[in-house]
Design a protein around this nucleic acid. Structure first.
Lengths: 276, 276
DNA sequence: CTCAAGATGGAATGTTTGTTCTATTCATGA
DNA sequence: TCATGAATAGAACAAACATTCCATCTTGAG
């Protein structure tokens, strides 16, 4: 493969990489992934810095480049640099292209743009409305809990599944209260005052989640709530609660803001526990 | 002038140059003109190449940089490189810029802002990169399916849980392939060529998801994929696939863009089916 | 298992790079 | 016109760099 002509631009390179995906050795594959995932860094870095970031040897970068017909790494890097220049140069072109396309935009794209806009709006609203003090209190409560119980149904469920995943990665003990067996209440019965819960519920509020939050609260277990209205049943039984309103498109609400807040809580809690 | 602090970003540098315009010696003025006129070349070139292009000596470049308070040319060049990166209008960068501006914020808010910024960036990237034709094809495939099988693990799982919820609301038959019993493969075995699947997998790719997508594909069942790289195993076995790169904060990737795309697909499919 | 071909890590190499130093040129005021 | 101080060019240097090379490890066929 070394003898062939090298790709002339970034897109050709990308195509070449995809084509050779199957036959590429492990380390070269690592480089390929890094190159496609962080092309900006490929443009600026040195062999040493890129190699470290991609967790390979500098020599592997050279071999990778030669594998695709370049003399060495420098020739390959040139492609990434030109890509950066061109992208910036044609920024206005891209805009014009977008506008022109806007006229004849397909139904699918129109829907997508709607959800993208809803996401942006939700995130903006979140940044504007969130209460720093409440956030700190919520983090404190969850950080000092032995186990964090995650409560959510329906539309809110994806939020806690992600939190559950993230907490797992961060080695923070948590339990997702939504088992297929349906023994959720047995599970919650194990919670003690040393634990805490995070409950999410948006209108129309799932009765189950609200009931569980109330039950925990009555047993002296701190509940942090995430909901969309001060009238939510969650607000009544939560130690700290956040109100955030997601923008919607076509009747389906975005989850961007909730996800962002959930992740901030998750990482914040992990960080706090690490410090303690 | 050498003793002062160097400008922190490109705009400050530009201002400093303009301010010193009158007092700058001839050759340094030459460098200044070149720097403002061809900032892209300043970002990538070496002292030798830039010096030649600007018709000065390499040492003049160094003196120019030192004149503005940098240690040497490298420090100056860094500004031009960062400018190229930031050109893409990253919220994350803008945020850092704001933070540098002063205002003390709590740790929790800082983390939250990070995730908000990552969400914005992801949504922007999505709007820029999505292929309208691919979106239409994906909607077609899923809309004509009798049953839609949803495949995802770990970090991608929240996406399909939300889709599952939304499809349910929209009365589109779908099955979430991730049961607690672990009979996923039995479930998939029921799929026929009249069905279709939607699979999501981000790096590090869950082997199970990739294998299931491949198996379905081999049995002639169309698979729509959502992944983060052209090298993803999903790309190989998907009829149509979307590549989207989520921005991350603190090592945790946003889900904003994936969610937006997933919702667009969901609503798009429901819409298409209603029309038929 | 055995062996060969290929892939890999890491040290060695020669080149390129940014920077410094010094002799020379240039501009300015007496 | 000369003296003085800044500005400059270009050579010299040391550090950083991409690249090569080779011993070691991995992989897969027979």
């Amino acid at each position: 493969m070394t003898g062939q002509l090298p790709p002339r631009d970034f897109d050709s390179l990308r195509a070449a990489i995809v084509e050779m995906r199957a036959t590429l050795p492990k380390r070269l594959m690592q480089v390929a992934s890094y190159a496609l995932e962080r092309p900006d860094d490929m443009a600026f870095g040195t062999t040493a810095s890129i190699a470290q970031a991609a967790q390979v040897q500098p020599s592997t970068l050279v071999r990778f480049a030669q594998n695709f017909g370049f003399d060495g790494f420098s020739g390959l890097q040139q492609l990434f640099r030109e890509r950066l220049k061109e992208r910036n140069g044609s920024y206005e072109d891209r805009l014009r292209h977008l506008e022109a396309g806007g006229m004849a935009e397909t139904e699918g794209v129109a829907i997508l743009n709607g959800f993208v806009a809803a996401g942006h709006d939700s995130l903006d609203a979140l940044a504007d409305t969130i209460d720093a003090a409440a956030l700190e209190r919520a983090i404190s409560i969850l950080a000092r809990a032995e186990t964090i119980y995650l409560i959510a149904r329906r539309r809110s469920f994806p939020i806690v599944t992600y939190m559950s995943y993230a907490f797992g990665k961060l080695k923070v003990p948590c339990r997702l209260v939504s088992t297929a067996i349906g023994n959720d209440d047995d599970l919650l019965a194990q919670a003690t005052a040393a634990d805490a819960a995070f409950a999410v519920s948006f209108s129309p509020y799932a009765a189950e989640s609200a009931a569980q939050a109330r039950a925990l609260n009555e047993r002296g277990i701190a509940v942090v709530g995430l909901t969309d209205s001060a009238l939510s049943p969650l607000a009544a039984s939560a130690e700290v609660w956040f109100e955030l309103i997601e923008s919607d498109h076509a009747g389906f609400r975005s989850l961007s803001a909730s996800m962002a807040l959930a992740m901030a809580l998750t990482v914040g809690v992990a960080e706090r526990r690490r410090q303690a």
